[in-house]
Design a protein around this nucleic acid. Structure first.
Length: 572
RNA sequence: GCCCCCGUAGCUCAGUGGAUAGAGUGUCGCCCUCCGAAGGCGAAAGCGCAGGUUCGAGUCCUGCCGGGGGCACCA
């Protein structure tokens, strides 16, 4: 079905085209009426005419009678009020539309989304939360509208630390090492290796040699390396499961995967005459980048010691994604500090011809997670905060909150509900702030059942579902005629029909927080309606309408939360 | 020094060049013989500063102030 907004826009566009072909009607939701049209003033300006006269003329061209009434207001706004027939018809269509009026795209793209990217043999910590949660939501959004998403978990599974990690593994013995890693205590393994590396020169030398044998493809060394990687990937999967993140081991395509392509990357850059030697390193100088002295800033693809930098890996990855995976779009959900690096990598990839203009390649940056002191979030001891620990604590707090509020859940039920609520709390808190901005991690606020939180949205869903539980699940299929006479019901209805634009907005801007804001607003509209309009004690057509509004609200919240990677419990 | 991001209510945050800048939280005041008060209704409270562009600026441009980040071989 066509969304309410899109129907209005098509009609308006036809009218605007007669004034000035292609002019944007600037259709927006409004507080003064249902929608407002702001585009007239701009046209009047260009035509050198009085805006209200132009608005008056436009009304002659507009064919809106069956959908909305118009009123010219202020300097030249046009306020639209939907006819009750039209609003009713839109609502009726929604009741039978699984997609709630969100259309699928006409031209599906192949979208590579690079997200999460933890490091092998290292704990997943809060630093990975944003990439993981935001990337996962972007993935769900793209898939929902019909794009083909290829997730890539670009894990750090290569480089100099692996010499020391493998030597440490050998020292421990495989069995001991594996059992220690499989307990998920990756950090202590890493730290032990690090400590030996820093304090024991012979170990350091062994580690250095081990890197060489690893990179030369020594079979036994690679087997040991593979053990480390597999154990870590297994652990990551546990964390993803715990957080309900879609990533699987088959999405893991780590740095090592591109290893054998790096020689070619450098060779081809050289062949394209893009390569320059500088300070012993092989570099590409893309125009527009300067260092702190104002001199050209290189992208170093091959270091002085002949090793490859991560720039080479990222270039190889772009090539692979465009040429082999057929990506039309590549999104890197990586922290904001890497902005310049990606600018340079993309610039070089374009210079080399590996990234055609037709391919959208974009760094999707996000701000830091800060502690209460507004510095990077760390424990009191200055260590990174484990993701699983965070989730466990959130579950515990959610469970306590649920226990306090006399609910008739069994202990098992309460625990599984608490798990869902805790996930909702953490994910929603992360997704609901504007991506680029740093945010202060405050578990108390996240798990609060009051306010703009995941738990509040869960509660809104649970309340609605409880109505239908009382009802015994009957009368659900009726598709009533909607009158939406009550102001709060009408406000709710307008919220319901706005869902497709919220989804599109989040997609276009790669901004899940837009969807969050919409869902919270919808939940508030619902509770206002719920206070004003008794459902079960009403009768006849009114009751049918109210039940249908309840059901639509629950479905919209559930679908919207689902696109954020959040599952709301039906009861809590 | 150059570049990027951010400065909105006491606090945490929304705000696609449009009308009277919105929420949450906290504070204060109301509302449970009524479907889940984990809620609702109401009040007080704000765009860092100065210019500029525009019919119209929180939004765009310039400068300044304040905070964070990046700026050649760790990714």
């Amino acid at each position: 079905m066509a969304s309410t907004y899109s129907i209005l826009l098509v009609r308006l566009q036809a009218g605007f085209d007669q004034l000035e072909p292609g002019a944007d009607p600037v259709l927006r939701a409004s507080e003064r009426s249902d929608f407002q049209v702001n585009g007239v003033m701009a046209i009047a300006k260009r035509l050198g005419r009085n805006p209200r006269d132009v608005a008056q003329e436009l009304l002659n061209y507009l064919d809106l009678k069956d959908v909305a009434s118009c009123e010219i207001a202020g300097p030249g706004f046009i306020n639209l009020t939907l006819t009750s027939d039209f609003l009713s018809a839109q609502l009726a269509e929604l009741t039978t539309d699984e997609r709630l009026a969100v259309s699928t795209v006409a031209e599906p793209r192949t979208v590579v989304i690079d997200y999460s990217a933890p490091n092998v043999a290292k704990e997943m910590h809060v630093g990975h939360l944003r990439s993981t949660v935001i990337g996962d939501s972007l993935r769900r959004l793209h898939e929902f509208v019909g794009h083909r998403v290829i997730p890539r978990n670009h894990v750090g599974d290569w480089g100099t630390p692996f010499g020391m990690l493998i030597e440490h593994l050998i020292d421990l013995g495989e069995d001991t090492a594996i059992s220690s890693l499989s307990m998920g205590d990756l950090d202590s393994f890493y730290r032990a290796a690090r400590a030996k590396f820093d304090g024991d020169d012979s170990f350091k030398e062994r580690s250095r040699l081990r890197v060489v044998t690893l990179q030369n493809g020594d079979e036994e060394t690679n087997r040991l390396w593979r053990l480390l990687v597999d154990q870590s990937v297994h652990y990551f999967s546990d964390v993803y499961a715990k957080l309900d993140i879609l990533l699987t081991p088959s999405d893991v395509v780590g740095e090592s995967f591109y290893n054998f392509m790096l020689e070619d990357v450098v060779r081809d850059l050289d062949a394209a005459a893009l390569l320059t030697e500088s300070g012993g390193a092989q570099c590409v100088f893309a125009p527009g980048f300067a260092n702190r002295d104002g001199e050209p800033l290189p992208l170093i693809v091959r270091k002085r010691d002949e090793g490859f930098g991560y720039a080479a890996t990222d270039l190889a990855a772009i090539r692979n994604r465009v040429a082999d995976l057929g990506a039309n779009e590549v999104l890197y959900v990586v922290g904001a500090p890497q902005a310049q690096h990606f600018d340079m990598v993309f610039a070089v990839a374009r210079l080399a011809g590996w990234l055609p203009d037709s391919v959208r390649c974009e760094h999707v940056p996000f701000g830091n997670v800060l502690g209460p002191d507004r510095k990077m979030f760390k424990t009191r001891a200055g260590e990174t905060v484990k993701l699983v620990g965070l989730l466990d604590e959130a579950i515990e707090r959610a469970e306590n909150s649920l226990r306090e509020r006399a609910s008739d859940l069994t202990d098992d039920e309460r625990h599984s509900v608490a798990t869902l609520v805790a996930r909702a709390a953490i994910k929603y808190a992360d997704l609901s702030t504007e991506r680029q901005r740093d945010y202060v991690f405050d578990l108390d606020r996240m798990v609060a059942f009051e306010g703009d939180t995941g738990p509040y949205l869960c509660y809104a869903v649970a309340r609605i579902r409880s109505i239908f539980r009382r009802l015994g699940d009957v009368d659900r299929a009726v598709s009533p005629r909607f009158e939406v006479a009550d102001a709060s019901a009408r406000a709710l209805a307008l919220g319901l029909v706005a869902f497709p634009e919220a989804v599109e907005d989040a997609l276009e801007l790669l901004a899940p927080h837009r969807l969050c804001a919409y869902l919270f607003d919808l939940a508030q509209r619902f509770t206002t309606f719920y206070e004003a309009c008794p459902v079960l004690s009403s009768t006849g057509a009114l009751r049918e309408e109210r039940l249908a509004l309840c059901d639509l609200t629950a479905r919209t919240l559930e679908l919207g939360l689902g696109l954020l990677g959040i599952v709301a419990p039906a009861q809590m």
